[in-house]
């Protein structure tokens, strides 16, 4: 298992998680209520290739749309893809992990075999191929990204479940006659929650990055404007060669900041306290 430790100055600052939650909160607000903060409506067109001035803080793009408005409206698509792909992969990974860790035996062998097989399949090329055939809409994109990212979650959840399935409180619930389902819901999920959160957050971050990469290849929904699509448009329509940094840098910065904030929030439980062991 690979461990990525965050730099110690990030850890030392006690308020970084709070800070990251505030940043993420701003983006979530922009995603839900873009109307309240965007300066214009997303379908008004101005003169194209405009430089930043007092009317358009970030200028206008090749079609004459206001870039700040696009940026705010794109937040929604980027976050939706990340969050829903994350939820899908979390659901699959958790159920497979708990099922194989809790029941063991042939169920475990079969499910971990499948997990290992899927783990080896090269994700990006397969996703590209599927996207090329499907001309995807946003939901197909979410399903494909979610279906190809649950394996590590399943493995971690399985290891954790095996660790606690013989612990005292699980055994006592079993003695009291609770069903497996109720034990899983009430005893196991609350305990494995601290491993689920970082996996969930990392999946969201990587789904957002994958979406941006697919947009860059022209493989996302052409009707939806995400941060990745904005950068791809800037590349295709001369934003880079004209050095219009106000066009491609804001979505890039938004993307990196969101990914970093999400990753940091996922590490909230990674403190210096020794890990609790349930005997």
């Amino acid at each position: 298992m690979t461990v990525i430790n965050i730099p110690s100055w990030l850890k030392k600052m006690r308020y970084t998680p709070t800070f990251c939650i505030i940043i993420l909160g701003i983006f979530v607000y922009a995603a839900i209520f873009p109307k309240t903060i965007s300066p214009y409506s997303p379908d008004i067109r101005f003169s194209p290739y405009g430089e930043p001035d007092e009317n358009h803080i970030l200028g206008t793009d090749d079609m004459g749309y206001d870039i700040l408005t696009l940026l705010i409206y794109a937040t929604r698509i980027s976050l939706i893809i990340g969050v829903f792909a994350g939820i899908l992969s979390l659901c699959i990974g958790t159920s497979i992990g708990i099922a194989s860790g809790f029941h063991q035996g042939w169920v475990d062998d079969l499910m971990m075999g499948v997990t290992d097989i899927i783990l080896i399949i090269p994700k990006i090329p397969v996703t590209i191929l599927i996207a090329a055939y499907l001309h995807p809409s946003i939901w197909i994109l979410i399903i494909v990204l979610g279906l190809f990212s649950w394996e590590t979650t399943a493995r971690v959840v399985r290891a954790k479940t095996m660790q606690i399935r013989n612990s005292g409180f699980v055994l006592s619930s079993r003695c009291l006659g609770f069903s497996s389902f109720s034990i899983i819901i009430h005893d196991i999920i609350p305990v494995i929650y601290p491993v689920l959160l970082p996996k969930f957050m990392l999946t969201i971050a990587s789904a957002m990055i994958s979406e941006a990469s697919l947009s860059f290849l022209g493989l996302s929904d052409p009707m939806m404007e995400s941060w990745g699509k904005m950068i791809a448009d800037a590349f295709d329509h001369g934003g880079f060669i004209r050095e219009m940094w106000w066009w491609f840098l804001p979505p890039a910065i938004c993307m990196c900041v969101t990914v970093l904030a999400i990753t940091r929030i996922g590490m909230i439980y990674e403190s210096n306290e020794p890990e609790m062991v349930f005997e």
Binding site: I6, P7, W9, I209, A212, F248, A252, M255, C256, L260
Partner: peptide, 18 residues
């Protein structure tokens, strides 16, 4: 570590474009 963290959380094509 911070530089490495920022670079690796950037999508690969973005780094090349910059």
């Amino acid at each position: 570590a911070s530089i490495a963290l920022v670079i690796s959380s950037t999508p690969p094509y973005l780094l090349s474009l910059l």
